[in-house]
Design a protein around this nucleic acid. Structure first.
Lengths: 218, 218
DNA sequence: GAACAAATGGAGAGTAGTTTCCACTTATGC
DNA sequence: GCATAAGTGGAAACTACTCTCCATTTGTTC
């Protein structure tokens, strides 16, 4: 969240680096307020710099959004790790869900970033390289415990998380809790559970989902 | 779906009425292909008429979309009625869900219309005046039967339906079945079910949800 | 078939965001 | 401190719509 992000190329000139951070900060603010489709103009205006500078640094909007997103991954990872450390596996999973969605509610920018933009860059993988394994761990523990139904996978939970997140609005800040409860009941391991149809959610499904939530062409 | 829709005003001149239908047909096609945000230009071009004509007939995009949507309601109502006629209440509900989502998968225009546009017009109620009561019936029957958990409401199911619909893409035409199965397991009445937090999903929640799915400001 | 209202097409003005470009400024290395 | 490459601002050209207007065409009525 501080400086960092040097992409191993020739380092930016000091003033340029400062501006990059400034853009990032301002963009976070602008996106949080106006949504991910806010114009570069607005970001530039608020940052007190020229549009050209913003374009120079982030020629693709997705790069900007991604940079923003990456700065949040640590937080998610921390949540995941805390969940993994909880004595009861199911409770950990539940808690992870709750906290994740809560984060999204609190930060509209984050929510939109999660739902909307992963796929603009074409890569769903963005944060999953780090978050994925952690969730995988949560899942396996809960399944070994006999609490979580054995036929769900990481991607499944990822999707549900997105979906829940998309329910979170300032107007209905708690509605998602209702549907999380519903979801969790469905996720419980039960002898009489309907086996999930094997349509094998590949990574692309997630991409497609998110295109969809945006009403975009895939 | 044929002519109809006379809003009790002075009837349109014959050619105008023909054009109205033409616009509707073309728009359905264009929307299905390009999404609800396709320009009026494109619709006019494909219909072989001037943009002016489209604007004259549907000054508000929402009117156009709504007209389109309304022509589908009958189909939904029919599905609902058939479900209500099934001997087993739970099976009926399940079947209703399945068919509804299948419809959305088959018709991208419909899906988008359902998810995206209800609220553009500011009225979520659009189709619910007719569909709502039917779903209500399905729910009550299934609850009386002891199959459906007693703490879900029409709006809940409506939301879940939208959510499932938003999962349906041509690329992953069956993924939603996986999550429908999950949802249904959560919807089952069970002694050990987690009671749904009472955040009372008001009608506005649905509106908010849909704004959200679109990433719009409410 | 004449008269009149209704409807039409599409040019063009308006709007909003995107992206480029380059004369000018500024950091950095020597 | 000077040379130089890197970085900057913001005007302006583009793009992609949305929406209006009115001279002209077309149905309708008598």
């Amino acid at each position: 969240m501080t400086a960092g992000n040097a992409t191993q190329e020739r380092p930016l000139r000091r003033d340029a680096a400062r501006n990059r951070e400034l853009i990032l900060e301002t963009a976070a603010e602008v996106f949080a307020e106006l949504g991910l489709e806010a114009g570069y103009d607005e970001i530039a205006r608020r940052a007190g710099i020229g549009v050209g500078t913003v374009y120079r640094r982030f020629p693709e909007r997705s790069e900007l959004v991604q940079a923003l997103f990456e700065s949040r991954i640590d937080e998610m990872v921390a949540i995941g790790e805390e969940a993994a450390g909880m004595p009861d596996a199911w409770a950990g999973l539940t808690w992870f869900f709750e906290k994740s969605v809560e984060k999204q509610v609190a930060d509209r920018g984050l929510k939109e970033v999660m739902v909307k933009t992963l796929n603009e860059s074409g890569r769903v993988t963005v944060g999953r390289e780090r978050i994925g394994p952690i969730v995988e761990g949560l899942i396996q523990r809960a399944q070994a415990d006999g609490a979580l139904r054995p036929d769900v996978e990481v991607t499944d939970l990822g999707m549900q998380l997105m979906l829940l997140g998309s329910l979170a609005t300032p107007e209905q800040p708690d509605l998602w809790r209702r549907y999380l409860a519903l979801l969790l009941d469905g996720l419980r391991a039960r002898p009489d559970a309907t086996p999930l149809p094997l349509v094998a959610p590949p990574d692309e499904a997630m991409h497609a989902l998110m295109c969809n939530l945006q009403g975009r062409r895939a």
